[in-house]
Design a protein around this nucleic acid. Structure first.
Length: 292
DNA sequence: ACCCAGGCGGGCG
DNA sequence: CGCCCGCATGGG
């Protein structure tokens, strides 16, 4: 017997569901977003949670349709609605490049996602493109995810599989789902995170401890670890440098000269301090989707 | 046909 | 250490 879903509302400001969804964060890889109705739906906690945003990038109301009475607080956390965006925008808008990106994608939030889900999706992301990350992620969810049922007992979706749900799969199984050379990393990460390292016990660790632990997973290097720290643990000190961010920053801040990752890291830390994770997301999204 | 994608591990100097 | 190479796959 299922409880009826109820509607919960949150007043928000400086929030954009569209830009947040489109900015290649874990939700982008498996949630369903409808731009016309500005609604987002995804399977979680045994249901399909439905989210609708009514308003502008400046202010509006976020409506959550869920069977769980604490979903609003979950969404509040997941979309970082506690963040004081005026202050963060002020801190990262140190030049016109960032302030332009902020005005273009005003309201885009970083999201906080399940650590394992973030780990797996960003292992898949390496040397890959967003469309294919999404394809592979959806294939894995379809094959190994936990079913979500409606009141009639029909399967209406599947939740992202925990690492233990992947243990029976072989490297070849992941190859068949399109994961390519990452298949062996997926297989090993599932085993390692089930038996050897509990990602959930790392919550609250500082940046360096998170990084050391995450990089002990085969297939997780500097960049993927930073993505997990940023979007899985919500630590804004992480500044993932992918091909887009590297190229953009070399062009904007280093006169087009090739720079080592370490030099770019140091620049970001000096320039944007402990909010550099947000600066990165705006630079990244602008580089990936901006015209020019 | 050719190039690229939210990089990484391994091997070599 | 730092640097360089190969890597599965599908879309532009």
């Amino acid at each position: 017997m299922q409880k009826d879903a109820s509607l919960q509302r949150i007043d928000v400001s400086l929030f954009s569901l569209k830009h947040t969804f489109q900015s290649a964060q874990p939700l982008t890889f498996y949630a369903d977003y409808n731009e016309t109705s500005n609604t987002l739906a995804y399977p979680v906690h045994g249901e399909i949670i439905n989210i609708m945003y009514n308003g502008t990038d400046e202010k509006g109301v976020l409506s959550i349709l869920s069977r769980h009475n604490n979903s609003a607080s979950g969404i509040f956390t997941r979309f970082r609605l506690e963040d004081r965006m005026p202050y963060i925008y002020k801190k990262i808008s140190t030049d016109e490049h960032i302030s332009n990106a902020v005005s273009l994608y005003k309201g885009m939030r970083l999201t906080i996602n399940d650590p394992w889900e973030t780990t797996l999706t960003f292992i898949i992301s390496q040397f890959n493109n967003v469309k294919r990350i999404r394809l592979i992620t959806k294939n894995i969810i379809d094959k190994f995810g936990t079913p979500v049922f409606n009141a009639k007992g029909e399967i209406i979706g599947k939740e992202f599989p925990q690492s233990g749900s992947l243990l029976a799969a072989s490297e070849k199984d992941f190859m068949a789902l399109g994961a390519g050379f990452r298949s062996k990393y997926i297989k090993e990460a599932a085993e390692y995170c089930t038996y050897n390292m509990n990602l959930y016990k790392l919550s609250g660790s500082n940046y360096q401890k998170l990084k050391d632990n995450l990089m002990s997973i085969k297939g997780v290097g500097e960049k993927v670890a930073d993505c997990i720290i940023l979007m899985g643990y919500g630590n804004l000190e992480a500044f993932p440098i992918d091909v887009h961010v590297k190229r953009t920053m070399e062009r904007l801040y280093f006169k087009g000269k090739k720079k080592k990752l370490r030099e770019i890291q140091e620049f970001a830390e000096e320039e944007w301090g402990k909010y550099r994770g947000y600066a990165q997301q705006y630079l990244f999204h602008n580089a990936r989707t901006g015209s020019r």
